[in-house]
């Protein structure tokens, strides 16, 4: 067992949604940058309290919707009017009215796939994360409310940050470090 155990961050538990919200305001004031609040459900207004920007997901989805729309319309035009022109039911080659339902469906399909794909990217999907070193953290998906600070935050200092977390009302303050076994 190595003597030097790397500290990845600190974790503190809070009483409930209101306490977490107040703590988030204090964390923000103290100038931390690589930190997060953890709660079993999204807390309305937490983004404001943490000073988080609105998620950019909407822009990706708009772009995807437009791509899906244009691609579907073009593809139907190309197959029906260019590659193998065929008159069916007395309709013109490029009968856009008849192409509308599929164009709509593909617009939606592209948007949905981008929404979910974009979310997976933006939430920084990772099976391993320092917060999981804490045994207490399992409560975050049940009824626990936590604040975590990562060690690569410029303001992070193992003891000072732990003290700060205690001072803003945190309990069960612990350092996130690898445990053997």
């Amino acid at each position: 067992m190595s003597e030097q155990v790397k500290v990845h961050g600190a974790l503190a538990e809070f009483d409930g949604p209101q306490a977490l919200m107040d703590a988030a305001g204090k964390m923000r004031k103290a100038g931390f940058s690589k930190w997060d609040t953890h709660s079993p459900f999204p807390i309305h207004g937490m983004d404001d309290a943490m000073g988080e920007k609105r998620s950019p997901l909407g822009w990706f989805v708009s772009a995807a919707a437009f791509t899906g729309f244009a691609l579907a319309l073009y593809f139907q035009y190309w197959t029906s009017a260019v590659d193998y022109p065929l008159i069916i039911a007395g309709k013109t080659y490029f009968s856009y009215m008849a192409f509308f339902p599929i164009t709509f469906a593909l617009t939606v399909l592209f948007s949905v796939l981008t929404t979910v794909g974009g979310m997976v990217v933006l939430i920084k999907h990772a099976f391993y994360h320092p917060v999981f070193y804490s045994n207490n953290f399992a409560k975050a998906s049940d009824d626990g409310f936590f604040v975590s600070v990562m060690a690569d935050d410029p303001k992070f200092d193992a003891s000072a940050t732990s003290d700060f977390l205690t001072s803003i009302g945190g309990t069960n303050v612990e350092l996130l470090q690898e445990v053997e076994g």
Binding site: A24, D36, T37, H38, S39, P40, P42, I43, M46, D47, M50, E52, R54, S55, L57, G58, V61, F104, A105, V108, S111, V112, T115, V116, G118, M119, V120, L122, I123, K124, H125, A126, F127, Y128, H129, V131, F132, F137, A140, S141, S148
Partner: peptide, 28 residues
């Protein structure tokens, strides 16, 4: 669970994704 850690920096994307999915699914 895709490494979900209940962080608010995840929730904010999650919530918007949910809203967008709802918005897209309604006309669908």
């Amino acid at each position: 669970a895709m490494g979900w850690r209940n962080g608010n920096k995840q929730w904010k994307h999650y919530e918007l994704a949910y809203l967008l999915l709802a918005g897209i699914s309604t006309p669908l």
